[in-house]
């Protein structure tokens, strides 16, 4: 599976450069932007796995991010769990939550599935807004005030975590799409009826994809909340997380491997530029998204794949998996 081809060499070189940046003393602001890029990249890759390759347009990913974040916060706050246990446990909690919910959710298809998952965010927000596990005298804890997340990690270590998760998400996508599961998912996305006739267990394939994506989305969320140092319901279960995933995948190119990488970079840049024009930013984003969907539905990568230059470049890398 992991042949040392041009692609991986490129990936290793880029990763090394990114890893060296904090050492050579790059500014905090740039580091912060790169940190966001890697978190967004992991989120976008996983949303692409769901919507682009599995036909599961899940709008409930913020709920799973929040569950992972809250589990992490709880474990650190109440039990002082070491991070190497707390982070996998948080991802596992989100995945378990997704597994239980998959029973009712997978009874719905298409738009109904999307709407059903969208509701999860609101349900979670309301519940965590109300939930106060233990009253702590003198400190507002739980409910709308949320929890602090004290990890003791330096910002640079957290940057490295984000780098690792972002790069891992690229490798994970390549691995899944090249696997038997990936082939099954693409077949289901293309034609569900034919997929079943070809011997594919649709429910099981979709479930695996849903659980893998949720685990990794939870991981990205953990890294983000370690950095933020605090979690509260309104932000955790906010639709703006959904905006990040959707924008990155759709602008970059849904159902393409490269799309989320390009898309995440654009979304991060926009998130840094647009606050200066706060009153116009929803307008600008809306127009951008409309233009992309109208003129190049397969996104920027879809547009580039039609050009000769890009295809010539791809020759030196291994073929993208459609």
């Amino acid at each position: 599976m992991f042949r040392l081809n041009a692609e991986y060499i490129l990936l290793v070189i880029l990763t090394l450069i990114m890893a060296l940046l904090p050492v050579v003393g790059i500014g905090w602001y740039t580091l912060h932007v790169l940190f966001l890029f890697f978190v967004y990249l992991a989120l976008a890759n996983m949303w692409n796995l769901l919507a682009g390759y599995s036909g599961l347009v899940s709008l409930g990913q913020p709920a799973f991010m929040g569950i992972a974040g809250y589990t992490l916060a709880m474990l650190l706050w109440f039990f002082d769990t070491p991070l190497y246990i707390a982070i996998p446990a948080a991802c596992a909690a989100a995945t378990a939550f997704a597994a239980v919910l998959s029973i009712p959710l997978f009874r719905m298809r298409g738009f109904y599935f999307s709407i059903g998952t969208l509701l999860l965010n609101e349900i979670c927000r309301v519940w965590f807004n109300w939930w106060r596990p233990i009253p702590v005298p003198g400190a507002p804890v739980g409910g709308g005030a949320g929890f602090g997340i004290r990890s003791g990690l330096s910002p640079i270590s957290i940057y490295y975590l984000a780098l690792a998760v972002g790069i891992a998400s690229i490798i994970l996508m390549r691995f899944i799409l090249g696997s038997k599961l990936g082939a099954g998912l693409m077949a289901i996305r293309d034609n569900e009826r034919a997929a079943a006739t070809c011997g594919i267990d649709i429910f099981r394939c979709k479930l695996y994809s849903f659980l893998i994506a949720t685990f990794f989305t939870g991981l990205a969320a953990c890294v983000f909340y370690l950095f933020q140092g605090h979690i509260e319901p309104t932000g955790a279960f906010s639709i703006s997380w959904l905006n990040v995933m959707l924008m990155a995948v759709i602008i970059g190119g849904i159902s393409t491997e490269e799309g989320p990488i390009v898309g995440s970079a654009i979304v991060v840049l926009l998130s840094q530029l647009l606050p200066r024009y706060a009153e116009y930013s929803p307008l600008i984003l809306g127009v951008l998204l409309t233009l992309i969907i109208t003129f190049t539905p397969p996104g920027i990568i879809g547009m580039m794949r039609k050009t000769r230059l890009y295809n010539a470049m791809l020759k030196y890398l291994s073929k993208p998996i459609t």
Binding site: M186, A187, R189, D190, N191, R193, A194, A195, T197, S255, T322
Partner: peptide, 10 residues
């Protein structure tokens, strides 16, 4: 199938 059901993008 009578009406072919390919996986069109593959």
């Amino acid at each position: 199938y009578q009406i072919p059901q390919p996986f069109p993008r593959l």
